[in-house]
C-alpha cells in the first residue's frame, strides 16, 4: 500500500469513526478482563474468608460460582467482542474500502 492510499484512508471520516469506536470498545473490554482477573487474585489474597462462605447448608462455597464465573466471563466477553467486530466493525471497514479505493 503506498502512502497516498494510507493518507486517504486516514482522512476518511468512516475510518476515523471505526478506529475510535473499536479502540474504545477493545480497551473497555481489556480493562474489564483485567479488573475481573486481578480482582479475583486480590480477593483470594485478601478475602479468603468471603470466598470460603458456604452457600446454603451444603459444602459448596461462594468461591465455586465466583471461580466458574470468571471462566464463563472470559469466554463470554471474547464472544461479545468477536460478534461486534465481525458484524459492525467489518461492515464499516468494507465501507471504508469502498469509499477510498474506488
Amino acid at each position: 500500500m503506498d502512502t497516498s492510499v494510507a493518507e486517504r484512508v486516514a482522512a476518511n471520516p468512516t475510518y476515523q469513526s471505526l478506529k475510535a469506536t473499536r479502540s474504545r470498545f477493545s480497551w473497555t473490554l481489556t480493562i474489564a478482563i483485567l479488573i475481573v482477573y486481578y480482582g479475583f487474585i486480590l480477593l483470594i489474597a485478601f478475602g479468603k474468608n468471603l470466598l470460603a462462605t458456604p452457600l446454603g447448608d451444603g459444602v459448596t462455597t461462594l468461591g465455586i460460582p465466583v471461580g466458574f464465573g470468571v471462566i464463563i466471563f472470559t469466554i463470554v466477553i471474547t464472544a461479545v467482542y468477536v460478534r461486534r467486530a465481525n458484524g459492525e466493525f467489518d461492515a464499516l471497514s468494507e465501507t471504508v474500502k469502498r469509499e477510498v479505493l474506488q
Binding site: 477493545s26 480497551w27 473490554l29 481489556t30 478482563i33 482477573y37 479475583f40 487474585i41 483470594i44 470466598l51 462455597t61 468461591g63 465455586i64 471461580g67 470468571v70 471462566i71 472470559t74 466477553i77 471474547t78 467482542y81 468477536v82 467486530a85
Partner: peptide, 24 residues
C-alpha cells in the same frame, strides 16, 4: 481443590487480551 482452579483461570485469561488487542 479450589487452588487448582486458580491456575486454570490464569491460563485462560490471556485469550481475551489476544482477541481485543492482537489477533486481527
Amino acid at each position: 481443590g479450589f487452588d487448582g482452579l486458580i491456575y486454570s483461570i490464569g491460563f485462560l485469561v490471556g485469550w481475551p487480551v489476544i482477541t481485543f488487542l492482537m489477533a486481527e
